[in-house]
Design a protein around this nucleic acid. Structure first.
Length: 936
RNA sequence: GGGCGGUUAGCUCAGUUGGAAGAGCAUCGGCCUUACAAGCCGAGGGUCGCAGGUUCGAGCCCUGCACCGCCCACCA
């Protein structure tokens, strides 16, 4: 089956991505690029996608991360690997439930009234409608995932993995249930793990209230300080440091809790700092983690004074019931003040924990929850990193990863929401007996009225923690698992290193006995042009789809107006100034190339819409045009045996090989910016500006063998170039491949040495170029000399103000026979590139010509009537000034005794050589200047 | 309080074993040279954040400091 050429004609002077991207993607799907077939005999390369939330829309972070993954997958696929990229999405418990809750609110439906089952149904409906939106957007970017293996964390297969994992951990004592203090979100009414709580650096503005608690015997007061006065209603003790002389006599006495009237003991505990505040601490076990721990040490009662939604209740005095916690705070402060028990109020920055999702202020709440015992699991994960089974890139993350694992506390995995994996535990209503099982236990089936399944669901990260193998069918022993696990690479954002990466390693080792991935790559954080992290709340995000498809001003304004940041007006003015008519889409390739070109091992990258035009679009357009030239020229290729390769042919093939080697190495080390920079300069500087320009006359040569040689070289270079670039910019290279391959086939140009393609038809399946080791340093240096000669001529021409259509002639006086030979070989290169009518050798100094002094030769350019002594003097004086500076530098080094004694010999020799050359050059320049002065 | 990253040309950034600083954009001058004016040719522009140290030699290694960004941490 011959593939159809893309509908974008080569007559188009500019590349128009919108016209071809969808048809190219369809071509990949039809030809099997997006479905992996366990090809025997090939090594595997596997990536499992970090599953985006089903509430998600593509943002720049996804764009970057998935470009990285696709580039690597495509690279490995072309390089002969059985490359598998498994896509999928995450059910994202709390996030999704609250999004759907908002939709229900808008319909006037209260989800609590709607009930659990109906609400879950509505969430499924929502998921089925919008849940794969982001995967569609990834296709738009050209991601070559294996869509036939698309997974969702709540698929039956993955849900079974979750239940199995839970049961096994429970049976091994690594999961337990208990009444502990947990982070509580009063808005979503659920427990949260430590990692889901965020704090702002330096805290938030608040107060420290100093409250007097009267001693029960009436002998006085103790003063305590608190940032949360309303919690005093739940105080069950006052604590002081045992070594604090001020309070030793009251330890063991009681105080009367104001507003409540409860008698509570004064206890001594090391936790209390003598020097902080008054040295007295109120102990509120049910609402503070430390207080909770103190209460356990001292057997204090733990009084919960708040309801799930953050209103006061339960053990608080009745009159406060139903009051919001912050309203209650005011009331308590007022009442204390009225009683004369308020000793003072201090303004103070206080650390405030907020729920990552709802942003509401976290309460600590004492409740029954399920936990994963972390230390035994963490230990294995630390070892895997220490013994090199797993490598993190950039390597600085390894320490951060281990530190967290060493210090992490048990993981609270139960959530009091409805959307998620139901905890597979059943309780006997009467006896309280607990059964944990993968499926509903027989007893519960037999007597359903006696048993009740736990109402809670699991933290969404619990299922994510199994993702690398649950997607392959674990706990069954599947073919995919046998073949593709452990995966090769995880590419992700550093902010989920704890949430996700560490936990995958722990569960992977626990359940499969192997690390889930060999390498982890952390991509940088995406920032705006001002260096601020891109985020919805700042409104500074750039929508990748806008970059690809373009957007009107109104659309570009969208995120800014939605976020309403403080500097909204300024941002809008800026936007209108830069893009008054909106942004013209640059296509997926330009997006990808730009992202990778900025992706070094730094912690962040700064992006702007301009970048995509400056870097990506420009490059892609240049490639389009260069390829037009190539394909047009090869369309009528010469037949027969080619002539011997010209110097530039050997040079460009050497360059191709060294480029190939360094691009491969850059990909292997995840130095994406280096890979792109190498390709960029090879293509633009070497291929376009030198090679293509040089062969233009050869393409028109009457000598067919000469034409054939240039065409074969050009064919090889471009065939390899498209393949080298394909992982980065797949669409355009695939489109151009479709144009180029038939031309090469027709003219028998496929069998050139670098073109070992496995497939003539699909670039995505073609072989990634290999380094044929044709690069030679000597050859490259020789060509570089020719380039320097050409630049001297161009410079002279430019400073003399001679138009490029005026032909000049050049005489060269080589310093010795060696240089003469080299220049002789490259004479024609000099002629063509410097636009000379002639280039010849001479045996002596020439007069009345422009002179350029090189280390290897003197150049005499016949400017004829164009010679301008003044301009020549200025040019030579510039050169003289530079060479004199050099001489001073070299001399100072060589006169330095320590340098002469201690520097290695080759460095000393180099200095001596450089000095001699510079002195020679100075002499020549002085002489030239003297002669020029006579002319004046 | 601890840790990480950044500080290099007007702007955005490379510079991964220490041997006289690079790219793109912007600026200036010249070119419609038949793939590309979204292009080509040429030029100018940097005491590599500051202060010390190691070294014959430091953008690179060490120490301290400053500023920007990020992460972790139970001082009420």
């Amino acid at each position: 089956m011959a593939r159809k050429n893309s509908s974008l004609s080569l007559d188009q002077k500019h590349y128009i991505p919108a016209q071809i991207e969808s048809e190219i993607y369809a071509l990949w799907e039809e030809s099997g690029v997006t479905s992996t077939k366990r090809t025997a005999g090939r090594p595997t390369y596997t990536i499992v996608i970090p599953p985006p939330n089903i509430t998600g829309r593509l943002h720049m972070g996804h764009a970057l991360n998935n470009t990285v993954q696709d580039a690597l997958i495509r690279f490995k696929r072309m390089d002969g690997f059985d490359a598998l990229w498994i896509p999928g999405t995450d059910h994202a418990g709390i996030s999704t439930q609250s999004v759907v809750k908002k939709h229900l609110d808008a319909e006037g439906i209260n989800y609590l009234e709607l009930g659990r089952e109906k609400t879950i149904e509505r969430i499924w409906e929502w998921r089925n409608k919008y849940g794969d939106q982001i995967l569609t957007q990834l296709r738009r970017m050209g991601c070559s995932c294996d869509w036939s293996r698309t997974r969702f964390t709540m698929d039956e297969m993955l849900s079974r993995a979750v239940r199995t994992a839970f049961k096994r951990l429970y049976d091994e004592g690594l999961i337990y249930r208990g009444k502990y203090i947990v982070n509580w979100c009063p808005v979503d009414r659920t427990a949260l793990s430590d990692d889901e709580v965020i704090t702002t650096d330096g805290g938030e503005p608040g107060h420290l209230w100093h409250i007097k608690y009267p001693l029960s015997d009436g002998s006085g007061y103790v003063t305590v300080a608190t940032t949360r006065p309303e919690t005093m209603l739940g105080d069950t003790a006052i604590a002081v440091n045992p070594k604090d002389p001020r309070y030793q006599k009251i330890v063991g006495q009681t105080v009367t809790l104001p507003l409540v009237g409860r008698e509570i003991p004064v206890i001594a505990d090391d936790y209390v700092e003598k020097d902080f505040g008054s040295g007295c601490l109120k102990v509120t076990p049910a609402h503070d983690l430390n207080d909770f721990q103190i209460s356990r040490r001292h057997n204090l009662p733990q009084l919960n004074v708040m309801n799930e939604d953050g209103t006061m209740g339960e053990h608080a005095p009745k009159k406060y019931h139903g009051m919001d916690r912050f309203a209650c705070r005011e009331v308590v402060v007022e009442e204390l003040s009225a009683l004369g028990l308020l000793a003072g109020i201090e303004d103070r920055m206080t650390p405030i924990g907020r729920a990552q999702r709802s942003r509401s202020i976290i309460e600590y709440r004492l409740s029954d929850q399920w936990f994963v015992r972390m230390q035994p699991l963490a230990q294995q994960a630390i070892e895997a990193s220490e013994n090199g089974e797993i490598h993190l890139f950039p390597t600085r993350w390894e320490k951060i990863y281990r530190d967290w694992l060493m210090n992490t506390r048990d993981w609270c995995i139960s959530r009091q929401i409805w959307w998620g994996h139901r905890i597979p535990a059943w309780y006997h209503k009467a006896t309280g007996e607990i059964l944990v099982a993968e499926e509903t236990p027989a007893q519960a089936k037999l007597r359903p009225e006696e048993w009740e399944q736990d109402k809670d669901v699991l933290d969404t990260w619990f299922s994510s923690a199994l993702w690398p193998y649950s997607t392959m069918g674990w706990p069954d022993k599947t073919e995919d698992l046998a073949r593709y696990y452990p995966t090769s690479l995880l590419s992700t954002a550093k902010d989920i290193i704890y949430f996700w990466v560490a936990r995958m390693v722990m569960t992977g080792l626990q359940f499969t006995g192997r690390v889930p991935f060999r390498q982890v790559y952390f991509h940088p954080v995406i920032c705006d042009a001002q260096g601020e992290t891109m985020s919805k709340s700042r409104g500074n995000g750039i929508d990748p789809l806008h970059v690809i498809e373009g957007a009107g001003v109104a659309e570009l304004e969208g995120p800014i107006r939605e976020a309403r940041p403080e500097n909204m007006e300024q941002m809008l003015v800026e936007l209108h100034r830069s893009y008054p008519g909106g942004f013209k889409g640059v296509g997926a390739d330009a997006l990808r190339l730009t992202l990778l070109s900025l992706n070094s091992h730094a912690q962040q990258v700064q992006l702007s819409l301009q970048k995509f035009e400056e870097v990506g679009q420009k490059f892609v357009d240049k490639l389009w045009n260069a390829s037009r030239f190539v394909i047009q020229n090869l369309a009528e290729a010469a037949v027969g045996k080619p002539a011997a390769p010209a110097i530039e042919d050997l040079w460009i093939l050497g360059r191709l090989d060294s480029t190939t080697a360094s691009v491969r190495s850059a990909f292997d080390r995840f130095y994406f910016s280096e890979a792109v920079a190498t390709l960029y300069s090879f293509f633009w500087d070497d291929v376009c500006d030198w090679y293509v320009e040089l062969i233009k006359p050869r393409m028109k040569s009457p000598d067919a063998a000469e034409r054939r040689r240039a065409q074969e070289t050009l064919a090889e270079v471009f065939s390899a170039l498209l393949r080298l670039l394909h992982p980065v910019i797949p669409y355009i290279t695939e489109a151009l491949w479709g144009h180029l391959q038939p031309v090469l086939a027709r003219h028998d140009l496929l069998s050139t040495p670098g073109n070992t393609a496995q497939s003539d038809e699909i670039c995505a399946f073609a072989a990634y170029p290999v380094d044929l080791r044709r690069f030679s340093k000597t050859q490259d240096d020789e060509f570089e000399l020719l380039q320097r000669i050409v630049r001297e001529v161009r410079n002279t021409r430019s400073t003399a103000g001679i138009a490029s259509n005026v032909s000049l002639s050049l005489l060269i006086l080589p310093k010795n026979e060696k240089w003469r030979e080299i220049i002789e070989k490259g004479k024609s290169v000099i002629e063509r590139s410097a636009r000379l009518k002639s280039c010849a050798f001479c045996c002596e100094k020439q007069n009345k010509m422009a002179v350029c002094v090189l280390e290897e030769a003197d150049l005499f350019i016949n400017l004829a009537e164009h010679i301008d002594a003044g301009a020549e003097i200025r040019r030579n004086q510039t050169a003289l000034a530079k060479v004199e500076k050099d001489i001073v530098f070299h001399q100072s080094k060589l006169q330095n005794k320590s340098f002469m004694e201690k520097a290695p010999e080759h460095v000393r020799m180099e200095q001596e050589h450089n000095l001699a050359e510079a002195e020679l050059k100075r002499a020549k320049l002085l002489q030239t200047l003297a002669e020029l002065n006579q002319l004046l």
